[in-house]
Write a protein that binds this DNA or RNA. Structure first.
Lengths: 211, 211
DNA sequence: GCGTGTGAACCTCTTCACAGCG
DNA sequence: CGCTGTGAAGAGGTTCACACGC
């Protein structure tokens, strides 16, 4: 496949298309149109076709896209045909909550292990997995080769967790911490910011009140 | 204040500025420059000044912005001076995890209540709050007037939860469900999609491998 | 006829660079 | 002199509308 530079927004939409396609597949649908994908994802059909056409011509004029083929193509583009392992760092409320909720229906991701620095927690179980000491992170990263780490530690410990993960060779991190983290350029860090989402919601709510 | 139409990206950055300002205030700083805000948020100083200048002239040439004043102004812009109540619908792993992790350090938000449809769960406690039946949602929304609801129910029940919330008069929703939800135009729905974030991370990780 | 793929127009956001003020 | 606020230029993403193939 040729390396195509593409915006994060487009990749994010690709992820949505993949999800819709998995659902369509479960419903037994064989063909899907850009219009159907668009409606489900809440965007325009032109945007769908534009996104898909960046990577190739997957559709057939007059009919649409074959669900199975398109899904496989998108997974190949995203690199999720064989998804990397996911580990959780921090066995507090959020970490354990994520572990217990699992990742079913997400196209093959799985929480492989959960770690904590507190000796009172390590050894106890969470969702059938032993909570392991953070000292064991390096060996797991080495064993699994490619790992995405979810940082779910308490405020103030985020940077330490990240440094430890980077040292262990992890290059993809999803953080639930409030504080912005510093990472080397070759390490991708993304954030899930509940409080920012709440701010955006509050803003739009309060703005609408003047109408 | 005059109604200014502004992009969601800008509002999201405003939320980040507010967070930086709260941290600076705790550290006892009185004045802050656009450059300092920019570095902390990982963007350019010009972007910061542009964002702020949309709403007014908050700074002083030659020195910078007064931390306290700017924070109050941004909170007023976001509408978060007196933040709305937040409730959680769904007392599964994620719902309870969120409840237990709380919202401290987010500028005044608070989880006011948690609801579930399962009679086996209602009545039991979570983080010092009784899990209440979803039948009680309408009265709570009415009592609090303005409420943001976090949907943390299991896959397949999201739409039902949303409908119930909308009927109760809730107009701002943050959903952790995988499935896209349908809501009336006057209701703002946002999503937290862990699996999409994982897809984006996988994509960039696998792309870098060819270098 | 139907739905894809795509040039071209359009629009929005970002970056640059500098005037202006404390 | 330092830093803000902002016109102007630039980059990037979205929408339109239509030619083409089934």
């Amino acid at each position: 496949m040729i390396a195509v530079k593409v915006s994060e927004k487009s990749i994010r939409r690709m992820s949505h298309y993949a999800r819709c396609l998995r659902m369509a597949k479960i419903r037994g649908e064989v063909i899907i149109t850009s219009q159907q994908l668009a409606t489900t994802c809440g965007i325009s059909s032109a945007a769908v076709r534009r996104d898909l056409s960046i990577y190739g011509e997957f559709g057939k004029q007059g009919s649409g896209y074959k669900v199975d083929d398109l899904l496989m193509n998108i997974q190949s583009i995203l690199g999720t045909t064989d998804p990397p392992s996911v580990i959780i760092v921090g066995a507090g409320s959020i970490g354990r909550g994520l572990m217990n909720s699992g990742l079913s229906g997400t196209g093959g991701y799985r929480y492989e292990a959960i770690f904590d620095s507190d000796p009172a927690k390590t050894g106890t179980s969470c969702c059938g997995k032993k909570i392991r000491s953070i000292d064991e992170i390096p060996e797991l990263v080495k064993e699994k080769k490619e790992v995405i780490a979810v940082i779910a530690v308490s405020t103030g410990s985020g940077q330490r967790a990240l440094d430890m993960l980077v040292d262990a060779g992890c290059s993809a991190i999803l953080s639930f911490t409030l504080e912005p983290l510093n990472a080397p350029a070759n390490v991708e860090v993304r954030y899930i910011e509940v409080s920012t989402e709440l701010d955006v919601l509050t803003h739009s709510m309060r703005r609408k009140e003047r109408a």
